[in-house]
Design a protein around this nucleic acid. Structure first.
Length: 708
RNA sequence: GGCAGCGUAGCUCAGUUGGUUAGAGCACCGGCUUCAUAAGCCGGGUGUCGCCGGUUCAAGUCCGGCCGCUGCUACCA
């Protein structure tokens, strides 16, 4: 063992945006960070975990308006919800701040002054679309219009989903504000920029050789940003904007991504203020008397360049410490696919907490996280199997099967011969600790479960249940065997304490008191009383998982109704997601549940849609398209239409020719990448089963007949 | 379309700087056990390491090209 630690470690997770609730995707990051922090604390290091709500920006402003409330009420409510969700998952922040705080305003100002002093702030006019009705400048996503390149309708302001063209909102044909429906006007406004090019060499060197950035990420940055002169970073927004007004530029506000990372500093400041510590002690570069603190940022891969380019640039300009490590993780998929509201796999934190034990998800994530940027998958069947086998079957069961024999006698006075089991697991501690340090929690969990296997094999070989029946002569031996088993259990609890703090507490209550140090894994306990055993963890039942998905779907429906949305997302016509397991004996309610009925419409509404019988004349593959077949249909006579239908992969083109189908005959033509689509072929699909099923009329129907 | 990542046993993955007959857990099958919240122990694996080609004495591991899957391409993780 080495001398007491002098490591001081400041750890952050990315700030969750105050515009939405915490879901299981967010939790990958917070659980990962929390495990790392708890591990460092258990090792005796001076480690603090800081985070905050990210509260500013257009989205918050718009949402507050829509809900008829103020921004500050909105973010206060959301903050409470976030804190409750984090507490539920045992995320133990040392301080949780807000970007809408005095400390943040002050620190933004200080950094701003440093940027100004170094001549890194420049001003330039920017052409931006303005919604005269709502009275706001429109961010790209709040403008829709026709793509200037391919004429596809209904495209966002920054790029076209049909042809992939990138442009600015001002290029859109017939732009419309999604806020008010008004036609936006192009206005010129002054914006302030941070020029990053003077820091180019610094960033190139830092990303490559500081060790803070994974080499793969450094490569990506080198190939995408650092190969050209760095573009100036637009850090201001004109009023109205929910955020901080820039002190030396009245009417201008710091862009949300400027003040968000400063939130790390502000959270530090608030934590320090309560303890007589100083931000400089953690973020300062000076102080030759003590080594600088380590700074670890945990982030998702989507915000990589903010944390590896902009943020280091700000810190460098302000002469503050740079991150020791930017630890980047991937995204969460559920059952092999992106979280989806219609499949019930868009799982909110509190929905999970209503059904299941948070420790189980913490363990599952730990078993999946290996420190890389790969996405991880939450397969619910695997989740149940893993948690039940590892935690319930191996770890908890070890105590459950032996503790009762020690309730009266307590642990043996001297640690018995266990064939070297405890010593072996103690020696494994170095490897397990190294895995935790690398954030390769999967490796740590594997090593811990191997120790659990050995412990269970020991119990099996010693057969304490036979000793218990053998009478008084065997009682000393029985006590010894149970003493070994419980010590091995406690050792596991120490190793798992960063992941399962509640299990660690339970183990402490059972015997030996609270687990406070990693070192407790190195020496067995003897001669102590053992408390009455209480069940530690229950198996995950399939019904709980079903309840989770059902609750989640109900949540999504409520949400959809609230927003008045008619369709939550495109039909997953070619989804490869595993279909939910349901009995085939009777029709499942799955499809209906997944896509609730649309609001009632009148017969007049229905009459607007002209559905006709049509005959498919030609059907051909569109080689470049993933989902589309190009069809020519006849409505009788010489009325024909070209229709692109999203049925590729489900229907053979040749088998379709001659077939009667139903088409929406009066649908506005839509310009698609591969040509103009003049209608829509009606087909059934749903979340309950994969596939797309064309509708056909009874025999006798003729092209051109209308559906009434 | 662009960008990124991944493709190793039915499933989830491990395979360190290329080096002996490619591993683990789960699932499955058989046996044992019954202390435990139906938990535990033992035994059982020839899998074109996605495909093709290249470098090498040697390639799951390096290089090139294909194919497939996933994610991103939103001021969200």
């Amino acid at each position: 063992m080495h001398a007491p630690s002098t490591r001081r470690i400041l750890v952050t997770s990315a700030l969750p945006y105050a515009n939405g609730h915490i879901h299981l995707g967010h939790l990958v990051e917070y659980v990962q960070t929390d495990i790392f922090v708890r591990f460092q604390k258990l090792r005796g290091h001076h480690c603090i975990y800081l985070c905050a709500d990210d509260t500013h920006g257009t989205a918050i402003m718009i949402r507050a308006r829509a809900e008829g409330t103020t921004e500050r009420e909105l973010i206060a409510t959301m903050r409470e919800a976030h804190l409750a969700d984090f507490a539920g998952f045992q995320i133990a922040f040392d301080h949780y701040g807000s970007t809408d705080s005095d400390a943040n305003r002050r620190l933004c100002g200080e950094i701003w002054s440093r940027l100004r002093a170094r001549g890194l702030v420049v001003s330039r006019d920017v052409q931006q679309l303005y919604d005269p009705q709502a009275g706001v400048f429109l961010a790209d996503r709040f403008v829709k219009g026709t793509c200037p390149k391919c004429q596809a309708a209904d495209q966002y302001g920054d790029s076209c989903e049909q042809c992939g063209a990138a442009y600015t909102p001002a290029d859109l044909v017939d732009p419309v504000s999604t806020l008010s429906g008004a036609r936006p006007e192009v206005r010129s406004a002054e914006h302030l920029f941070v020029t990053l090019e003077p820091l180019h060499d610094f960033l190139a060197t830092w990303t490559r050789s500081s060790g803070a950035v994974d080499p793969r990420i450094a490569n990506y940055l080198a190939g995408h940003f650092l190969c050209d002169p760095l573009r100036d970073w637009d850090v201001s927004r004109p009023a109205p904007y929910f955020g901080f007004e820039i002190p030396d530029a009245p009417g201008h506000y710091w862009y949300v991504w400027f003040d968000a990372p400063v939130g790390y500093l502000a959270a530090t400041d608030e934590w320090c203020a309560a303890r007589g510590d100083t931000v400089a002690a953690w973020w300062g570069r000076g102080g030759a008397n003590e080594p600088p603190a380590e700074i670890h940022h945990f982030i998702g891969k989507d915000i990589t360049y903010f944390h590896t380019l902009f943020w280091p640039a700000m810190l460098e300009a302000a002469e503050l410490s740079l991150p020791t490590k930017v630890r980047i993780h991937g995204f969460l998929t559920v059952n092999g696919a992106k979280m989806s509201k219609s499949r019930g796999t868009f799982l909110l934190a509190r929905t999970y907490l209503d059904q299941l034990d948070p420790g189980m998800l913490r363990y599952f994530y730990a078993a999946k996280l290996s420190g890389g940027i790969d996405d991880i998958d939450l397969n619910l069947d695997e989740f149940a199997a893993k948690v039940n086998a590892d935690l319930v079957g191996k770890v908890v069961n070890l105590a459950s099967r032996t503790a009762r024999w020690l309730e009266t006698t307590g642990l043996s006075a001297r640690y018995p011969d266990d064939g070297g089991l405890f010593a072996q697991a103690a020696a494994d501690g170095a490897e397990i600790a190294a895995a935790y340090e690398d954030c390769d929690f999967a490796r740590a969990m594997r090593a811990i479960m191997l120790a659990a296997d050995r412990a269970n094999a020991y119990v099996d070989a010693e057969q304490p249940w036979k000793l218990a029946k053998a009478g008084p002569d065997a009682s000393a031996k029985l006590q010894d065997v149970a003493t070994v088993a419980l010590n091995l259990f406690r050792q596991l609890a120490v190793y798992l304490a960063p992941v399962l703090p509640v299990l660690a507490e339970q183990a402490g209550r059972l015997m030996g008191g609270p687990i406070r140090s990693w070192e407790e894994s190195q020496a067995p306990l003897v001669g102590l009383p053992v408390a009455a055993f209480e069940p530690l963890m229950k198996r995950v039942e399939k019904t709980q998982l079903e309840a989770l998905l059902a609750a989640s779907r109900a949540e999504a429906e409520k949400d959809a109704r609230h927003k008045g949305a008619t369709a939550m997302e495109p039909t997953p016509a070619t989804s490869s997601a595993t279909p939910p397991v349901t009995s085939a004996a009777q029709d499942s309610g799955e499809a209906l549940a997944a896509e609730p009925l649309a609001p009632t419409c009148t017969i007049d509404d229905f009459a607007k849609i002209d559905l006709r019988v049509a005959r498919i004349l030609t059907a051909e593959e569109v080689p470049e398209a993933k989902k589309l077949l190009k069809l020519t249909v006849s409505l009788g006579g010489d009325a024909t239409r070209t229709v692109f239908a999203g049925i590729k992969g489900f229907h053979e083109p040749t088998a379709l020719v001659g077939r009667l189908v139903i088409v929406v005959a009066n649908l506005a033509p839509r310009q698609m990448k591969f040509g103009l689509s003049e209608g829509m072929v009606v087909a059934a699909s749903g979340a309950g089963a994969p596939g797309v099923y064309l509708l056909s009329p009874d025999s006798g129907a003729l092209p051109g007949m209308r559906l009434h």
